[in-house]
Design a protein around this nucleic acid. Structure first.
Lengths: 185, 185
DNA sequence: CAAATATACTGAACACTGTTTAGTAATTCC
DNA sequence: GGAATTACTAAACAGTGTTCAGTATATTTG
Protein backbone atom coordinates (compact mmCIF):
# COMPACT_ATOMS: atom_id res chain seq x y z
CA UNK A 1 0.00 0.00 0.00
CA UNK A 2 1.24 3.49 -0.89
CA UNK A 3 0.10 5.07 2.32
CA UNK A 4 3.16 4.33 4.42
CA UNK A 5 5.29 5.55 1.54
CA UNK A 6 3.38 8.79 1.50
CA UNK A 7 3.93 9.09 5.24
CA UNK A 8 7.61 8.52 4.71
CA UNK A 9 7.62 11.13 1.97
CA UNK A 10 5.81 13.61 4.18
CA UNK A 11 8.32 12.98 6.91
CA UNK A 12 11.28 13.86 4.70
CA UNK A 13 9.40 16.84 3.32
CA UNK A 14 8.79 18.06 6.83
CA UNK A 15 12.45 17.62 7.70
CA UNK A 16 13.36 19.65 4.66
CA UNK A 17 10.93 22.37 5.65
CA UNK A 18 12.50 22.49 9.08
CA UNK A 19 16.06 22.64 7.76
CA UNK A 20 15.16 25.27 5.20
CA UNK A 21 13.56 27.36 7.91
CA UNK A 22 16.64 26.93 10.09
CA UNK A 23 18.97 28.07 7.31
CA UNK A 24 16.70 30.99 6.53
CA UNK A 25 16.55 32.10 10.16
CA UNK A 26 20.32 31.74 10.38
CA UNK A 27 20.85 33.82 7.27
CA UNK A 28 18.58 36.54 8.53
CA UNK A 29 19.44 36.70 12.18
CA UNK A 30 22.73 34.93 12.70
CA UNK A 31 23.61 32.19 15.18
CA UNK A 32 21.85 33.58 18.21
CA UNK A 33 18.49 33.82 16.46
CA UNK A 34 18.42 30.18 15.44
CA UNK A 35 16.25 28.99 18.29
CA UNK A 36 13.86 26.08 18.15
CA UNK A 37 11.02 28.48 18.81
CA UNK A 38 12.01 30.80 15.96
CA UNK A 39 12.37 27.95 13.52
CA UNK A 40 9.05 26.47 14.62
CA UNK A 41 7.27 29.79 14.30
CA UNK A 42 8.54 30.26 10.76
CA UNK A 43 6.99 27.00 9.58
CA UNK A 44 3.93 27.56 11.77
CA UNK A 45 4.36 24.58 14.04
CA UNK A 46 4.79 24.18 17.74
CA UNK A 47 8.36 23.98 19.04
CA UNK A 48 7.70 20.50 20.37
CA UNK A 49 6.90 19.26 16.87
CA UNK A 50 10.49 19.71 15.73
CA UNK A 51 11.46 17.04 18.22
CA UNK A 52 9.34 14.53 16.33
CA UNK A 53 11.67 15.00 13.36
CA UNK A 54 14.96 15.77 15.00
CA UNK A 55 16.41 14.30 18.15
CA UNK A 56 17.83 17.61 19.23
CA UNK A 57 19.01 20.97 17.97
CA UNK A 58 22.50 19.73 17.15
CA UNK A 59 21.15 17.10 14.80
CA UNK A 60 19.01 19.74 13.14
CA UNK A 61 21.96 22.06 12.70
CA UNK A 62 23.97 19.20 11.28
CA UNK A 63 21.53 19.04 8.39
CA UNK A 64 21.47 22.81 8.06
CA UNK A 65 25.25 22.75 7.87
CA UNK A 66 25.10 20.06 5.19
CA UNK A 67 22.88 22.41 3.24
CA UNK A 68 25.45 25.18 3.47
CA UNK A 69 28.27 22.89 2.38
CA UNK A 70 26.19 21.73 -0.55
CA UNK A 71 25.96 25.30 -1.71
CA UNK A 72 29.73 25.60 -1.55
CA UNK A 73 30.04 22.47 -3.66
CA UNK A 74 27.68 24.01 -6.16
CA UNK A 75 29.88 27.09 -6.30
CA UNK A 76 32.91 24.87 -6.88
CA UNK A 77 31.13 23.02 -9.65
CA UNK A 78 30.31 26.25 -11.42
CA UNK A 79 33.97 27.09 -11.84
CA UNK A 80 35.12 27.04 -15.43
CA UNK A 81 38.34 25.25 -14.71
CA UNK A 82 41.55 26.02 -16.56
CA UNK A 83 43.89 23.36 -17.91
CA UNK A 84 46.85 24.10 -15.67
CA UNK A 85 46.40 22.32 -12.33
CA UNK A 86 47.91 25.16 -10.36
CA UNK A 87 45.61 27.62 -12.04
CA UNK A 88 42.73 25.38 -11.01
CA UNK A 89 43.98 25.48 -7.45
CA UNK A 90 43.90 29.25 -7.54
CA UNK A 91 40.42 29.17 -9.00
CA UNK A 92 39.07 26.91 -6.30
CA UNK A 93 40.63 29.07 -3.61
CA UNK A 94 39.15 32.17 -5.16
CA UNK A 95 35.79 30.48 -5.27
CA UNK A 96 36.09 29.50 -1.62
CA UNK A 97 36.93 33.02 -0.58
CA UNK A 98 34.28 34.53 -2.81
CA UNK A 99 31.70 32.23 -1.24
CA UNK A 100 32.75 33.24 2.26
CA UNK A 101 32.30 36.88 1.27
CA UNK A 102 29.06 36.45 -0.60
CA UNK A 103 27.40 34.24 2.01
CA UNK A 104 28.99 35.10 5.33
CA UNK A 105 26.09 33.56 7.26
CA UNK A 106 26.31 30.25 5.45
CA UNK A 107 30.04 30.37 5.94
CA UNK A 108 29.51 30.85 9.66
CA UNK A 109 27.07 27.99 9.64
CA UNK A 110 29.77 25.74 8.20
CA UNK A 111 32.30 26.64 10.83
CA UNK A 112 30.20 26.95 13.93
CA UNK A 113 31.05 23.30 13.55
CA UNK A 114 30.99 22.67 17.29
CA UNK A 115 27.21 22.43 17.55
CA UNK A 116 26.61 20.11 14.59
CA UNK A 117 29.70 18.15 15.59
CA UNK A 118 28.04 17.27 18.87
CA UNK A 119 25.46 15.38 16.86
CA UNK A 120 28.08 13.06 15.48
CA UNK A 121 30.19 10.38 17.15
CA UNK A 122 33.57 11.49 15.96
CA UNK A 123 35.16 13.59 13.26
CA UNK A 124 35.33 10.61 10.94
CA UNK A 125 31.59 10.21 10.76
CA UNK A 126 31.16 13.86 9.94
CA UNK A 127 30.84 14.06 6.18
CA UNK A 128 29.14 17.37 5.50
CA UNK A 129 32.28 18.82 3.98
CA UNK A 130 33.36 15.75 2.08
CA UNK A 131 31.99 16.80 -1.29
CA UNK A 132 33.71 20.16 -1.36
CA UNK A 133 36.85 18.76 0.20
CA UNK A 134 37.08 15.95 -2.32
CA UNK A 135 36.87 18.41 -5.18
CA UNK A 136 39.73 20.37 -3.68
CA UNK A 137 41.66 17.18 -3.06
CA UNK A 138 41.27 16.19 -6.70
CA UNK A 139 42.81 19.45 -7.85
CA UNK A 140 45.62 19.04 -5.34
CA UNK A 141 46.25 15.56 -6.70
CA UNK A 142 46.55 16.98 -10.18
CA UNK A 143 49.02 19.52 -8.88
CA UNK A 144 51.07 16.79 -7.28
CA UNK A 145 51.08 14.80 -10.51
CA UNK A 146 52.43 17.79 -12.38
CA UNK A 147 54.88 18.51 -9.62
CA UNK A 148 53.74 22.09 -9.25
CA UNK A 149 53.17 21.69 -5.54
CA UNK A 150 55.40 20.46 -2.75
CA UNK A 151 53.13 18.05 -0.99
CA UNK A 152 53.14 14.34 -1.59
CA UNK A 153 49.94 13.38 0.22
CA UNK A 154 46.91 14.96 -1.48
CA UNK A 155 44.89 14.90 1.72
CA UNK A 156 47.54 16.74 3.67
CA UNK A 157 47.92 19.14 0.77
CA UNK A 158 44.21 19.76 0.63
CA UNK A 159 44.11 20.38 4.37
CA UNK A 160 46.84 22.94 3.97
CA UNK A 161 45.13 24.74 1.12
CA UNK A 162 41.79 24.68 2.89
CA UNK A 163 43.34 25.99 6.08
CA UNK A 164 45.12 28.67 4.13
CA UNK A 165 41.91 29.83 2.50
CA UNK A 166 40.14 29.72 5.83
CA UNK A 167 42.84 31.80 7.45
CA UNK A 168 42.78 34.31 4.65
CA UNK A 169 39.04 34.72 5.04
CA UNK A 170 39.42 35.47 8.72
CA UNK A 171 42.16 37.94 8.04
CA UNK A 172 40.87 39.60 4.97
CA UNK A 173 38.38 42.27 5.73
CA UNK A 174 40.52 44.36 3.48
CA UNK A 175 41.63 43.57 -0.04
CA UNK A 176 40.61 41.00 -2.58
CA UNK A 177 42.75 37.95 -3.10
CA UNK A 178 45.92 39.42 -4.49
CA UNK A 179 47.43 37.37 -7.35
CA UNK A 180 50.73 36.44 -5.81
CA UNK A 181 48.98 35.66 -2.57
CA UNK A 182 48.19 32.41 -4.21
CA UNK A 183 51.77 31.92 -5.30
CA UNK A 184 52.38 29.31 -2.68
CA UNK A 185 53.39 26.50 -4.91
CA UNK B 1 46.66 58.58 49.09
CA UNK B 2 47.20 54.89 48.47
CA UNK B 3 43.63 53.90 49.03
CA UNK B 4 42.37 54.44 45.51
CA UNK B 5 45.39 52.57 44.27
CA UNK B 6 44.51 49.67 46.49
CA UNK B 7 40.97 49.79 45.14
CA UNK B 8 42.35 49.72 41.64
CA UNK B 9 44.56 46.79 42.56
CA UNK B 10 41.66 44.92 44.09
CA UNK B 11 39.66 45.52 40.96
CA UNK B 12 42.25 43.94 38.72
CA UNK B 13 42.71 41.12 41.20
CA UNK B 14 39.01 40.47 41.13
CA UNK B 15 39.01 40.45 37.35
CA UNK B 16 41.81 37.95 37.42
CA UNK B 17 39.91 35.77 39.86
CA UNK B 18 36.91 35.86 37.56
CA UNK B 19 38.90 35.01 34.45
CA UNK B 20 40.76 32.23 36.21
CA UNK B 21 37.48 30.77 37.38
CA UNK B 22 36.10 31.01 33.86
CA UNK B 23 39.09 29.20 32.38
CA UNK B 24 38.90 26.57 35.08
CA UNK B 25 35.19 25.96 34.53
CA UNK B 26 35.84 25.79 30.81
CA UNK B 27 38.61 23.27 31.25
CA UNK B 28 36.48 21.11 33.48
CA UNK B 29 33.12 21.27 31.81
CA UNK B 30 33.59 22.58 28.31
CA UNK B 31 31.84 25.46 26.58
CA UNK B 32 28.31 24.74 27.73
CA UNK B 33 29.24 24.80 31.42
CA UNK B 34 30.80 28.25 31.29
CA UNK B 35 27.78 30.11 32.59
CA UNK B 36 27.86 33.29 34.59
CA UNK B 37 26.28 31.44 37.47
CA UNK B 38 28.86 28.66 37.44
CA UNK B 39 31.74 31.10 37.31
CA UNK B 40 30.22 33.18 40.08
CA UNK B 41 29.63 30.16 42.28
CA UNK B 42 33.23 29.04 41.92
CA UNK B 43 34.56 32.31 43.31
CA UNK B 44 31.72 32.49 45.84
CA UNK B 45 30.11 35.65 44.54
CA UNK B 46 26.69 36.46 43.26
CA UNK B 47 26.22 36.30 39.47
CA UNK B 48 25.35 39.98 39.39
CA UNK B 49 28.75 40.85 40.82
CA UNK B 50 30.52 39.73 37.66
CA UNK B 51 28.75 42.53 35.84
CA UNK B 52 30.52 45.07 38.03
CA UNK B 53 33.79 43.88 36.52
CA UNK B 54 32.77 42.85 33.04
CA UNK B 55 30.28 44.48 30.74
CA UNK B 56 29.00 41.14 29.52
CA UNK B 57 29.93 37.54 29.07
CA UNK B 58 31.65 38.10 25.73
CA UNK B 59 34.06 40.58 27.27
CA UNK B 60 34.80 38.10 30.03
CA UNK B 61 35.46 35.32 27.55
CA UNK B 62 37.70 37.63 25.60
CA UNK B 63 40.00 37.80 28.61
CA UNK B 64 39.73 34.06 29.17
CA UNK B 65 40.70 33.55 25.57
CA UNK B 66 43.68 35.86 26.00
CA UNK B 67 44.72 33.64 28.88
CA UNK B 68 44.62 30.57 26.67
CA UNK B 69 46.62 32.26 23.93
CA UNK B 70 49.19 33.34 26.47
CA UNK B 71 49.71 29.73 27.39
CA UNK B 72 50.28 28.91 23.74
CA UNK B 73 52.87 31.68 23.57
CA UNK B 74 54.56 30.20 26.60
CA UNK B 75 54.68 26.83 24.87
CA UNK B 76 56.22 28.49 21.83
CA UNK B 77 58.82 30.22 23.96
CA UNK B 78 59.85 26.96 25.54
CA UNK B 79 60.89 25.55 22.20
CA UNK B 80 64.60 24.98 21.92
CA UNK B 81 64.87 26.37 18.43
CA UNK B 82 67.22 24.91 15.85
CA UNK B 83 69.41 27.00 13.58
CA UNK B 84 67.76 26.13 10.29
CA UNK B 85 64.72 28.34 9.76
CA UNK B 86 62.69 25.58 8.19
CA UNK B 87 63.47 23.30 11.08
CA UNK B 88 62.22 26.06 13.34
CA UNK B 89 59.01 26.21 11.33
CA UNK B 90 58.52 22.51 11.88
CA UNK B 91 59.20 22.92 15.56
CA UNK B 92 56.66 25.66 15.98
CA UNK B 93 54.06 23.64 14.12
CA UNK B 94 54.77 20.63 16.26
CA UNK B 95 54.43 22.77 19.35
CA UNK B 96 51.11 24.13 18.09
CA UNK B 97 49.74 20.68 17.45
CA UNK B 98 51.11 19.32 20.71
CA UNK B 99 49.40 22.15 22.56
CA UNK B 100 46.10 21.43 20.87
CA UNK B 101 46.40 17.82 21.94
CA UNK B 102 47.58 18.50 25.47
CA UNK B 103 45.05 21.21 26.19
CA UNK B 104 42.03 20.55 24.01
CA UNK B 105 39.80 22.72 26.17
CA UNK B 106 42.10 25.72 25.98
CA UNK B 107 42.41 25.11 22.29
CA UNK B 108 38.63 25.17 21.99
CA UNK B 109 38.57 28.35 24.01
CA UNK B 110 40.87 29.96 21.47
CA UNK B 111 38.74 29.03 18.54
CA UNK B 112 35.26 29.39 19.87
CA UNK B 113 36.35 32.80 18.71
CA UNK B 114 32.81 33.89 17.85
CA UNK B 115 31.82 34.75 21.41
CA UNK B 116 34.90 36.76 22.39
CA UNK B 117 34.90 38.33 18.94
CA UNK B 118 31.52 39.88 19.69
CA UNK B 119 33.22 41.86 22.41
CA UNK B 120 35.46 43.59 19.91
CA UNK B 121 34.68 46.10 17.19
CA UNK B 122 36.37 44.33 14.32
CA UNK B 123 38.98 41.70 13.66
CA UNK B 124 41.72 44.32 13.66
CA UNK B 125 41.17 45.25 17.27
CA UNK B 126 41.32 41.61 18.31
CA UNK B 127 44.84 41.01 19.50
CA UNK B 128 44.64 37.94 21.71
CA UNK B 129 46.53 35.85 19.20
CA UNK B 130 49.07 38.48 18.23
CA UNK B 131 51.87 37.24 20.45
CA UNK B 132 51.78 33.67 19.21
CA UNK B 133 51.16 34.78 15.66
CA UNK B 134 54.07 37.19 15.68
CA UNK B 135 56.41 34.46 16.84
CA UNK B 136 55.26 32.30 13.96
CA UNK B 137 55.57 35.21 11.58
CA UNK B 138 59.14 35.81 12.69
CA UNK B 139 60.08 32.25 11.85
CA UNK B 140 58.32 32.53 8.51
CA UNK B 141 60.29 35.69 7.81
CA UNK B 142 63.51 33.82 8.47
CA UNK B 143 62.38 31.10 6.10
CA UNK B 144 61.69 33.68 3.43
CA UNK B 145 65.11 35.25 3.91
CA UNK B 146 66.74 31.89 3.40
CA UNK B 147 64.49 31.14 0.48
CA UNK B 148 63.34 27.86 1.94
CA UNK B 149 59.68 28.78 1.58
CA UNK B 150 57.68 30.00 -1.38
CA UNK B 151 55.84 32.90 0.13
CA UNK B 152 56.99 36.48 -0.19
CA UNK B 153 54.72 38.11 2.37
CA UNK B 154 55.49 36.82 5.87
CA UNK B 155 51.98 37.56 7.07
CA UNK B 156 50.38 35.59 4.29
CA UNK B 157 52.88 32.83 4.87
CA UNK B 158 52.14 32.76 8.57
CA UNK B 159 48.42 32.61 7.87
CA UNK B 160 49.00 29.64 5.63
CA UNK B 161 51.12 27.79 8.15
CA UNK B 162 48.71 28.56 10.96
CA UNK B 163 45.76 27.43 8.89
CA UNK B 164 47.61 24.29 7.94
CA UNK B 165 48.33 23.45 11.54
CA UNK B 166 44.76 24.22 12.48
CA UNK B 167 43.45 21.97 9.74
CA UNK B 168 45.76 19.18 10.76
CA UNK B 169 44.53 19.39 14.32
CA UNK B 170 40.93 19.05 13.18
CA UNK B 171 41.80 16.11 11.01
CA UNK B 172 44.24 14.34 13.16
CA UNK B 173 42.62 12.13 15.71
CA UNK B 174 44.93 9.51 14.38
CA UNK B 175 48.69 9.72 14.04
CA UNK B 176 51.28 12.11 15.36
CA UNK B 177 52.66 14.72 13.04
CA UNK B 178 54.49 12.62 10.47
CA UNK B 179 57.86 14.05 9.45
CA UNK B 180 57.23 14.67 5.80
CA UNK B 181 53.84 16.10 6.63
CA UNK B 182 55.74 19.21 7.38
CA UNK B 183 57.64 19.02 4.12
CA UNK B 184 55.62 21.81 2.63
CA UNK B 185 58.41 24.16 1.91
C1' DC C 1 -20.52 3.25 8.73
C1' DA C 2 -18.91 3.24 13.76
C1' DA C 3 -15.55 1.94 17.17
C1' DA C 4 -10.81 1.22 18.28
C1' DT C 5 -6.26 2.15 17.40
C1' DA C 6 -2.34 4.52 15.92
C1' DT C 7 -0.37 8.94 14.45
C1' DA C 8 0.50 13.95 14.58
C1' DC C 9 0.61 17.64 17.14
C1' DT C 10 0.54 21.04 21.04
C1' DG C 11 0.34 23.72 25.85
C1' DA C 12 2.50 23.89 29.65
C1' DA C 13 6.03 23.02 32.40
C1' DC C 14 11.17 22.30 33.93
C1' DA C 15 15.64 23.65 34.42
C1' DC C 16 18.57 26.34 32.54
C1' DT C 17 20.72 30.83 30.26
C1' DG C 18 22.46 36.23 30.20
C1' DT C 19 21.29 40.46 32.13
C1' DT C 20 19.08 44.44 34.88
C1' DT C 21 17.47 46.74 38.86
C1' DA C 22 16.10 47.98 43.36
C1' DG C 23 17.67 47.58 47.68
C1' DT C 24 21.03 46.10 51.39
C1' DA C 25 25.54 45.78 53.70
C1' DA C 26 30.11 47.48 54.08
C1' DT C 27 33.52 50.91 53.66
C1' DT C 28 35.44 55.54 53.24
C1' DC C 29 35.11 60.41 53.97
C1' DC C 30 34.24 64.53 56.66
C1' DG D 1 30.19 59.96 65.39
C1' DG D 2 27.08 60.62 60.89
C1' DA D 3 26.87 61.22 55.71
C1' DA D 4 28.16 59.67 51.31
C1' DT D 5 30.20 56.42 48.51
C1' DT D 6 31.20 51.91 47.23
C1' DA D 7 30.46 46.76 46.96
C1' DC D 8 27.44 43.49 46.70
C1' DT D 9 23.19 40.65 46.20
C1' DA D 10 18.16 38.76 45.77
C1' DA D 11 14.83 38.70 42.73
C1' DA D 12 12.97 39.24 38.55
C1' DC D 13 12.67 39.33 33.19
C1' DA D 14 12.95 37.38 28.90
C1' DG D 15 14.90 34.05 26.58
C1' DT D 16 16.85 29.12 25.74
C1' DG D 17 16.56 23.55 24.80
C1' DT D 18 13.78 19.84 26.00
C1' DT D 19 10.08 16.69 27.89
C1' DC D 20 5.52 15.00 28.66
C1' DA D 21 0.61 14.56 29.43
C1' DG D 22 -3.08 15.27 26.81
C1' DT D 23 -5.76 16.50 22.53
C1' DA D 24 -7.04 16.40 18.00
C1' DT D 25 -6.55 13.90 13.50
C1' DA D 26 -6.05 10.13 10.50
C1' DT D 27 -5.96 5.17 9.72
C1' DT D 28 -7.27 0.48 10.49
C1' DT D 29 -10.40 -2.85 12.11
C1' DG D 30 -15.03 -5.16 13.26
Amino acid sequence: MGISERKEREKTEMRKRIVDAAVQVFKEGGPEKVSIRNIAERIEYSPATLYLYYKDKDELLLDAQADAFDQLSVAFRQIKFAQEPFKRLEQIMESYIAFARAEPELYDLMFIMKAPMNAVEDFDSWDNGDDAFDMLKQVVEDCISEGCIRFTDPIVGAISVWGFAHGLVSWTLNAGLSPHTCARK
